[in-house]
């Protein structure tokens, strides 16, 4: 999760999506597929941002309400919502977002460092900001999108 300093040159592709009024993007290399919303099976003792699990061709996929994770409030998923299936380290996770908007091709020097607006949420997830056609798109890191793996259960 080192915030690599922008150093130009290398181009990369990002997928941008919308949650409420804000726009975010993730590295396209992290995205495995995009699919429509289907009802999830609720998990007991899950944090509020974990909507539950769905069946992705035989695998059990946890669904994270990315808006709730980022502190933007929980979504009321409808058929128009979208799940971005992303690879996070060795796990696969589904991100519930409002809509996918674009594929952006950017170079590293276009990524501006996150301004020092010391919020935990920002520090944990936002890798940098992009200015695309006058809109601000937050480039987010998915490393900490899932709750910690190990519960200190029955400690």
């Amino acid at each position: 999760m080192s915030e690599a300093a922008p150093q130009g040159g290398e181009g990369r592709e990002l997928i941008s999506f919308r949650i409420g009024a804000q726009e975010f993007c993730v590295d396209i290399m992290e995205v495995r597929e995009i699919r429509g919303w289907s009802p999830a099976t609720a998990l007991p003792q899950a944090p509020p941002f974990v909507r539950g699990v769905i069946n992705l061709r035989g695998a059990v996929l946890p669904i994270v309400d990315l808006g709730a994770r980022l502190g933007l409030g929980t979504a009321e998923p409808t058929a128009r919502h979208v799940i971005i299936v992303a690879q996070v380290q060795n796990q696969v996770v589904g991100l519930l977002v409002d809509a996918v908007s674009d594929i952006l091709t950017v170079t590293d020097d276009m990524v501006q460092p996150t301004p020092d607006v010391a919020s935990d949420m920002v520090r944990a997830f936002v890798r940098g900001l992009l200015a695309i056609d006058g809109r601000m798109v937050s480039f987010i890191s998915l490393d900490r999108v899932l709750p910690d793996r190990e519960l200190d259960h029955a400690a």
């Binding site: 099976t41 998990l43 003792q45 899950a46 974990v50 695998a59 059990v60 796990q91 709750p147």
Partner: peptide, 18 residues
Amino acid sequence: KSLEANYRRVPGIAAATI
């Protein structure tokens, strides 16, 4: 189906199925 593969251990739940 493993719940831990993509998520984590859940108390009271052994695994998942489809």
